[in-house]
Amino acid sequence: MPLPPRWLRRAVFAPGVVLLAFVVVTTLPVWALLAAAASPLVPGRLRPLRLFWIGCVYLVWDAAALLALFVLWVASGFGWRSRSPAFQRAHYVLAGWFLRVLFWQARWTLRLHIDVVGTDPDTALPGRPELVLCRHAGPGDSFILIHGLVNWFNREPRIVLKDSLQWDPAIDVLLNRLPNRFIAPTPERGEETVRQVGHLATGLDDNDAFVIFPEGGNFTPRRRLRAIARLRSLGLERMALRAERMRHVLAPQPGGMLAALDAAPDAGVIFVAHTGLDRMLTVADVWRELPMDKRIVMRFWSVPPEEVPTGRQERIDWLYDWWARIDAWIAANRDDAA
C-alpha cells in the first residue's frame, strides 16, 4: 500500500492516534478485564493480557510523543527554528527519554534483557563520528540499536530507514525533523537511494552515528534465497556463492556503505550483530514467543578509519568478510546453538 501524503499523515493519522489513545485509556479497565478473562484460554502465561498491555503502552507512548513533538513545534516558532542545533538536540533528548520508557516497559512486561559485548561507539573512537552497520533480524531490533546509541553511548544517530515506517505517526514526525532518510528499497531507485545515503553521511560531527542496515530488510529464509538469486541475475556468481555460505544473514548490499564511506572518510566503522530475536520472523512467531523472556546479546566490533580499505571492490569484499564473521558469531550465539 502506498504511503499517504505527508499532509494527510499530519492532519489525520497523528490526531487519530492521540484520540485513540484517549479512548483506550478511558476504557482501560474493560479491555484489561477482557484480556485477563481470555488469558486462561490461551497457552502461555497471561499472553493476551501481556499483549494487550504492551500494545496499550505503545499506543499511549506514540500519543505522548506526538503531543511532546507538537509542543516542540510550537516552541520552535511553528517549525521555523526546528532545524537549529538547540531544537535538534531537544529532539534527540526527547527520543532518548521515550526510548528509555519503552524499554523499561519491555523489560517489565516481556521480560526482555539486553546485554552488550565488544567495543562500543564511545570507547572505540572517542571524538570521531561512526558509521554503524547492523544486521536486521527480528521485531524491534532497530529500536534496540537506536536506544543504545542515544541512551548508552550519547550519540546522535542519522538513520537510513524504510519509508513504510512513516505509517507510525510518532516515528514519522520525529525522524523527519532530524537528519534521517526514509527510502523505498527498490532496484529501480538504486542510484537515487545511494545518492541520498551519501548526502546524509556528509558533514558528520564527533558525536554522530550514521546507521545503515546493509541487508535492506529483516532476515527471513525466503529473503535470503531471493537475495542470492538476485546476485546471480546480476552476474555476481562469486558474491552469490559467498552469500550461500552465510546461513543467518542476508547478502549485504554494498551501495549505501560505499556512499557513506566516500562521504565520511574520517569516520570509524562499527559492525553490530545481535541474537535473541532470530526466531521471530512472523506475527505468529511473535505470538508464540510471548512472554518473550529473552536475553538479547548485541556484539559491537570497531574498525578505525585507517583500517578501512580504499578501493571499491576491496570495500565490497571487506563488507562480505565482515558479514561472514557476523554470520559465524550468530551461529555460535543463537538461542538454539549447541
Rank of each mutant, 00 (worst) to 15 (best):
L3V: 08
L8H: 04
V12N: 00
V12K: 03
V12M: 09
A14L: 10
P15H: 11
V25Q: 09
W31A: 07
P43T: 08
P48K: 05
W53E: 13
I54H: 06
V60W: 13
L66C: 10
L67M: 13
G77T: 03
F78T: 05
W80T: 13
S82A: 15
A86N: 00
F87H: 15
R89D: 15
Y92Q: 04
G96C: 08
L99P: 00
Q105V: 05
H113S: 12
I114R: 08
D115H: 11
V116E: 08
V117A: 08
P121S: 02
T123M: 00
T123V: 11
A124R: 02
G127V: 09
E130N: 09
L131R: 05
S142M: 07
S142R: 05
F143R: 00
L145K: 09
L149T: 04
R155K: 14
P157Y: 09
I159E: 07
S164L: 12
L165K: 04
Q166N: 07
D172G: 03
P179K: 10
F182G: 05
I183H: 06
E191S: 11
E192W: 11
Q196A: 14
G198A: 06
H199D: 15
L204P: 08
N207Y: 01
D208P: 04
F210N: 07
F210T: 11
V211R: 09
P214A: 12
P214H: 06
P214F: 11
G217L: 06
P221S: 02
R224I: 03
R226S: 10
R232I: 01
S233H: 12
M239R: 15
A240H: 06
M246V: 05
M246W: 01
M246Y: 03
R247E: 15
L250M: 14
P254Y: 11
G255P: 03
L258M: 11
L258I: 08
D262I: 01
A263T: 09
D266P: 00
A267D: 02
A273M: 02
A273F: 00
R279W: 00
W287D: 02
S302R: 04
E314Y: 03
E314S: 06
I316L: 01
W318G: 03
Y320M: 12
D327R: 04
I330D: 03
